[in-house]
Design a protein around this nucleic acid. Sequence first.
DNA 1: GTCTATACATCGATAGAC
DNA 2: GTCTATCGATGTATAGAC
Lengths: 198, 198
Amino acid sequence: MGVMPPAASTPSSSPAPGAAQSSARDRVLDAYEELLAEQSERAATLDAVAARAGVSKGGLLYHFASKEALASGVLDRFSDLIEDDIRRMREAEDGPVDYFLRTSIPTDSRFERAIVAIARLAQAADPRARDALASAQRRWLEVLQEAVGDPLVARTIMLIGDGMYYNTALLPAANNVLRDETDIDDLVTLIRRFAEGR
Amino acid sequence: MGVMPPAASTPSSSPAPGAAQSSARDRVLDAYEELLAEQSERAATLDAVAARAGVSKGGLLYHFASKEALASGVLDRFSDLIEDDIRRMREAEDGPVDYFLRTSIPTDSRFERAIVAIARLAQAADPRARDALASAQRRWLEVLQEAVGDPLVARTIMLIGDGMYYNTALLPAANNVLRDETDIDDLVTLIRRFAEGR
DNA sequence: GTCTATACATCGATAGAC
DNA sequence: GTCTATCGATGTATAGAC
């Protein structure tokens, strides 16, 4: 078979024990995700991604043979991230609801960047991106339901989280419905009372 | 000034009293909106829009000199629709909260189609589309706040509505968090109790 | 007001040198 | 594994006939 590009379906292939700086492959994936999340699906051209990753277009295409392969790359990384998040949600000190709401607020985490990037792909009618979002939502909903009991309350909390992401992805940053830490504290208190009082 | 295309900034120019069938200009706008909402921003090319509207590309470009003008067209129509919606929300028999939640659920209305279309433009990094969404949100929030009193409760209801639209726009239809009429009835009851019990 | 033909830019992807 | 050069397709927009 000779020399082949690393299979696109190899997620979490962490850098070799000694290698400090990230591989070109990872830098390309990061660049693509950043351009998607910070700008738009249209802005994330092969040229732009290559430039941001510091490689040539040919270099990029060695690692990812097509744009579809590039999308597969971010989707694969996402399935790892979502597993981590579900685990953390389950083990969260103040419970899954608290964790879910607090992590739905705009931040600059890798996780959020990945979600926004995938939301852009979903808007661009990529069926795999839509499925990935739908699947993540099912996972969250499951844990929420275990935590609060009532399915309708769980779904309502889910919608609130969805709303926050929607705002992050679509609106100018200054226009978020919830802004600061205090808002979240209050919201969490409100929802908790709401979840219990039913 | 001679023959000029009708100004793009002339919204609600309803069809002349006798004209039953819609003008080419309106059909083009509808086609663009439909392709945006039903497919994607990328799918809404001039060729595709012209074909769906039943005109040639040249014919389309007579009415809208550029893609930007096309976007202006749907944004202008949207400002009319949002005014109508706010008015209806204020006068709704069962109150603004009930109205807001029920109209946030996926339907096939012209209004929803416009919102999803503009959400697609916003995702494509069109600043005017983002502003239009942010502005609509402010209007809704204002009315919600008058209705429920508590600003945090109002914002929470807003987020629930946002979540519903996010699901409509991004997810495969079968995966909506809320599905049928019963869900909405229950949700409305739940939120009402929630809004009062604070 | 609507059409055809075409110019021009850009994007994804291939070929092949190093 | 990374580069340059280039091809082919597609998208926006213009020019000009009818």
